[in-house]
Design a protein around this nucleic acid. Sequence first.
DNA 1: GATAATCCTTCCAATGATTGGAAGGTCAAG
DNA 2: CTTGACCTTCCAATCATTGGAAGGATTATC
Lengths: 138, 138
Amino acid sequence: MNIGEVARASGVSAKMIRYYESIGLIEAAKRKGSGAYRVYSDGDVHVLRFIRRSRDLGFTVAEIANLLRLWQDRRRASADVKSLVTAKIADLDTRIEELLSMKRTLEHLAMNCNGDHRPDCPILDDLSGKACCHGNGG
Amino acid sequence: MNIGEVARASGVSAKMIRYYESIGLIEAAKRKGSGAYRVYSDGDVHVLRFIRRSRDLGFTVAEIANLLRLWQDRRRASADVKSLVTAKIADLDTRIEELLSMKRTLEHLAMNCNGDHRPDCPILDDLSGKACCHGNGG
DNA sequence: GATAATCCTTCCAATGATTGGAAGGTCAAG
DNA sequence: CTTGACCTTCCAATCATTGGAAGGATTATC
């Protein structure tokens, strides 16, 4: 298969396939007779699908490299894989909590804003540092 | 104040202050006598704090530019500010949902993995596309 | 007034994953 | 041998931020 076909088959763009090759995430593809045109096999599709799925789950390229190594190591301990996954879960938790915190604040601000034609805006007051409604509750 | 002092006072790094100036988010600071060394006032600290807080709440630079414009426009409608905020909330919701979806999948995978010294690993099986436990329930 | 320490200046590069485009080479079909 | 679709490499941009280099300005001290 050419790179376009393998891209369609795997869901990884041709651009990204070349990029993954350039950074060593995947092996350099063999070339057709004259040396141009990368050639791929079904096995490569398999690898790229693995990468695609890992990426969709939020793993970085570096982490995917680890996952691939473990995947291809028949003597791996499943604990090693699991620890990567649990670390990633913790990672996601952190990011989710950050986003939730932002969201809560914004919802609080929006709730107190009339949202009409008048200029009075507690949102801007808050952003500018003015004490508003959530001081020390004193 | 020099840029270092205003950076400490506002919580925005000197690097970022220069960057914000370069992209036009803030006005170019006046320079000290000889033309070197940017000089800042308390008002600038105020602006930078506004930016800092907006950034912490997840607004992009482009969005902060809008917020600043509204902030400085005394005839703004609070509805305009509120719509920026509600759009950002929707934005956060989308990202949170994506992360939660990843997390759920990873937790599901981790739950089914023994995490011991043996190589059998449903996580890798799933990543590689093997049908595992969550097929069509047949 | 020399010197050292600290600050500032500009410019360039890297991050991480991805996309875009330009300029040109290759292949398959007609 | 042309056409068109595909491929190649290389360079640049994204977004916000950080890092460093090389050098100039200011301040404090002697």
